[in-house]
């Protein structure tokens, strides 16, 4: 099974990278862009098939190291 994890800066945290990319898109003529935020995408290959147990394990991993709860939120999708 594979865990696909998205880590994003919290809404309250400044994302200057996202802002800069937003400005770049606008200056290239892309219209109607409201906001750009940039995060991370992490793939973890997992052994075992118990989805609930793997989800719990990945939750723990996200909390301990893969994200920093002070500044980031995360989402886990198991496939």
């Amino acid at each position: 099974m594979k865990a696909k994890i998205i880590v994003m800066p919290k809404k309250t945290v400044l994302d200057p990278q996202g802002k800069t990319v937003q400005h770049a898109l606008e200056s290239l003529g892309f219209k109607g862009i409201q906001e750009v935020r940039i995060g991370k995408f992490i793939e973890v290959e997992l052994k075992g098939g118990n989805k609930a147990a793997l989800k719990k394990k990945m939750d723990e991993a996200c909390h301990k190291i893969l994200s920093n709860p002070v500044i980031e939120d995360y989402e886990i999708a198991l496939k």
Partner: peptide, 17 residues
């Protein structure tokens, strides 16, 4: 020290990148 939670808060990318 912030990551280790010996100090609160976090340090992120400089505003001007």
């Amino acid at each position: 020290l912030c990551e280790a939670q010996l100090l609160p808060g976090a340090l992120i990318r400089n505003k001007g990148l």
